[in-house]
């Protein structure tokens, strides 16, 4: 790495660290920018992911979880903040360095339909990253592709077919093989099982877990399904209107949520009322617009505990118990 300008000091066991990340999109406004408003898709987000860890990220549509994931890979351009991957700020990297680092940061998306080119054979889809990085000989590439198809549980005769010939679960396996081709250290998994039926979803979740232990992968696992995230994650972050409002180990977060929004979210899981014995909390209204989020706490307009202070001060994400962070003025009282 040398003395690159993007070098930053982080703890040894941390693979990825976000510091005060902001991704805002301009909207409306005139040609001169007068009256321009901003969609605050990701607003002041900080967290770390340790090597070999799975950090789950949950939140409802529009909370900014997908934009956050894409910002980490620099598929979106954040306004400010830092994305520190192995001690280097991804956002400050020159293009050449970014290409080198991207081999270590790969992604799996929800829709294997949309992310697989229908005119390419499975063999070429899996090898695409290797070709782009361009340092393997043809026979080495073929060997790697054959190995990958085994790893994700497909057969070698599948290599010469096209993606439309496969079921949803098989297509997601192809997407996973593609992401792993470059032997990445970090994988962003954005709703990787949401489009799959339950019986197939469990196959893919098992595969993701196996691959993690085999290759020492670190996952950022983004999903709206709270049960899936609880199952797969070591730690879980909850997003609301562009902010992380709670972050803790999966166990602590699901057993003892300290932010009212998290409590409402967990109580809304169908069938959970009976299972957990906790009363259902029915939230009123919809999520406010991220263009003009409420002052103070973003959740206060739907929160049953809101007081005057909630509209005046943004509650910081603070440690309410060891390694349990919540952004609520009343997190200790809950």
């Amino acid at each position: 790495m040398g003395n690159s300008v993007s070098e930053v000091q982080t703890a040894d066991d941390v693979l990825l660290e976000l510091r005060n990340l902001r991704t805002w999109y301009p909207t409306g406004g005139g040609v001169l920018g007068g009256g321009r408003e901003w969609v605050k898709a990701v607003d002041d987000v900080s967290f770390t992911i340790k090597r070999g860890e799975t950090l789950g990220l949950v939140g409802e549509s529009g909370c900014g979880k997908t934009t956050l994931g894409r910002s980490i890979l620099r598929l979106e351009q954040p306004q400010s903040g830092q994305v520190i991957f192995e001690g280097e700020d991804v956002l400050k990297m020159p293009a050449g360095r970014l290409k080198q680092v991207r081999r270590n940061m790969q992604a799996i998306f929800q829709d294997p339909h949309g992310s697989l080119d229908p005119r390419m054979k499975v063999r070429d889809l899996i090898a695409e990253g290797l070709v782009v990085q361009g340092e393997m000989r043809r026979d080495e590439r073929d060997a790697r592709v054959a190995e990958l198809i085994d790893v994700v549980g497909l057969r070698r005769e599948h290599l010469d077919r096209y993606s439309h010939e496969f079921s949803g679960g098989q297509r997601q396996r192809i997407g996973i093989a593609r992401a792993l081709a470059l032997r990445p250290k970090f994988v962003l998994a954005d709703e990787p099982v949401s489009a799959l039926d339950l019986s197939v979803q469990s196959q893919v979740l098992n595969l993701l877990k196996d691959l993690q232990s085999e290759f020492g992968l670190t996952y950022l696992f983004i999903a709206h399904d709270l049960s899936v995230v609880e199952y797969i994650s070591d730690r879980v972050g909850v997003m609301y209107l562009g902010r992380i409002v709670e972050l803790a180990s999966a166990e602590a977060l699901y057993d003892d949520p300290r932010m009212p929004y998290t409590q409402a979210l967990l109580s809304a899981i169908p069938g959970n009322e009976r299972a957990s014995g906790r009363a259902r909390i029915i939230l009123q209204g919809d999520v406010p617009s991220p263009i003009n989020p409420p002052s103070g706490c973003p959740f206060r307009t739907r929160c049953w505990l809101a007081q005057d202070v909630c509209s005046e001060l943004v509650p910081p994400l603070r440690e309410v118990k060891p390694d349990h962070f919540a952004a609520c003025h009343f997190a200790d009282a809950i």
Partner: peptide
């Protein structure tokens, strides 16, 4: 196949 807390850390019984 349903991922639940009871099976955390274990493989899911996939079909």
């Amino acid at each position: 196949s349903m991922p639940t807390r009871a099976v955390r850390g274990q493989r899911l019984a996939a079909i």
